[in-house]
Amino acid sequence: MRPLEVTTPDGIELDAVVHPPASGTSRGTVVQAHGITVDRDEGGMFVRLAERLAAQGFTAVRFSYRGHGLSGGEQRGATIAGEMLDLQSVIDRATEVAPGPVSLVAASFGAVSACLSLRLLRERVANLVLWNPVLDLEHTFLSPELPWGRENFGADGRRAVREQGYLLIDGEFRLGRVMWEEFHHYRPADAFAADGTRALVVHGDRDTYVSFDIAKAAALSRPDTAFHTIAGSDHGFDTPEFEDEAIATTTAWLAGSERARR
């Protein structure tokens, strides 16, 4: 693993690392986009995924969005538009370091910037993997239907945004007014449906954070898209066995995608 220097067009320095392929010859690059309260490690799962991909001959790239981890920017200043710029900057830099086909793995809220960027990256991203993806901002945040959303984004959360300019998610991430306003305007599910990039969606069927049913319906309505259920799993694949299943499923699918292009 080695550092990867990435600076966005608006001057934000992102914390990013590259896991080179164990074989020395890359089969392709896999960029990993994390969720809203974590960083480039995705609670450790992205580290394990990157190591597995590198062992399979891929170049893996992990990074923290602005306002997350060791990247520049403040939590309250993080926006969906900014995350789209971060993602595109990382992909640009990654292809300079390791030319070749690019795949994208996006977890939870990382799916928002990933799906919204597909139209802009259409000729750059060959494969897309979504883990427990946030595809419906309204029913996840604005009018939450699941326990995590009701706990974090109910009346108290909305009042905090109005009165202090941010709300605190899970006691650790300050979501600011601008991102909250963006939730009213962006439609990641529509962007996902409109794009033809080959895709895999992996989701736990006991997810109390992000709707399993919305993700499944989106996947099944879209051509060239596989859906894998992690039976019994909550959000983030909440046991080592569920994590292993998600990582193994993703690695096998990406390896199969690479062979299919030959």
Rank of each mutant, 00 (worst) to 15 (best):
P223I: 05
R40Q: 15
R174N: 02
E5G: 07
L116A: 12
G165Q: 01
L14I: 01
S71K: 04
S117A: 03
T229S: 01
D195E: 02
A218Q: 06
G82N: 05
A219R: 00
G236H: 09
L137P: 10
A219N: 02
R2L: 15
H139V: 13
V201G: 02
P21R: 04
L167R: 10
F153T: 02
A226R: 05
R187K: 15
V17C: 09
V202R: 00
S113D: 07
D86F: 15
L168Y: 13
V38C: 11
K216E: 09
T225M: 02
A193K: 05
V6L: 04
G176P: 11
L200F: 07
R122V: 02
D86W: 14
E258I: 15
D15M: 13
I91K: 01
I80N: 02
V47A: 13
T251N: 11
L137F: 06
S257P: 13
D238Y: 04
T59N: 07
P147G: 08
E243N: 14
H228F: 14
D41S: 08
H19G: 08
E123V: 03
A252W: 08
V202I: 01
G176R: 01
T197C: 12
D224W: 10
A217T: 09
P21S: 13
I214A: 14
D41C: 09
L135Y: 03
S211G: 04
A189R: 10
E123M: 15
L53G: 08
S23R: 05
I36C: 05
S23W: 06
V6H: 02
L135D: 04
L87F: 08
D10P: 05
D86A: 12
F109G: 15
A107Q: 14
K216A: 09
D156G: 03
E74P: 10
L167H: 12
V31M: 13
R177C: 06
L146D: 05
H19P: 12
L142K: 01
P101R: 13
S108L: 06
T59Q: 12
L168H: 13
E243I: 13
P20Y: 09
T239Y: 03
W148M: 11
F192H: 03
A54C: 01
P240N: 11
L128A: 00
G24L: 04
P147D: 10
S26Y: 05
S89W: 07
A194P: 00
E83M: 12
L121G: 12
H203G: 02
R122S: 09
L200Y: 07
M1T: 08
T7M: 15
S211W: 03
R262H: 10
T208D: 07
L128M: 00
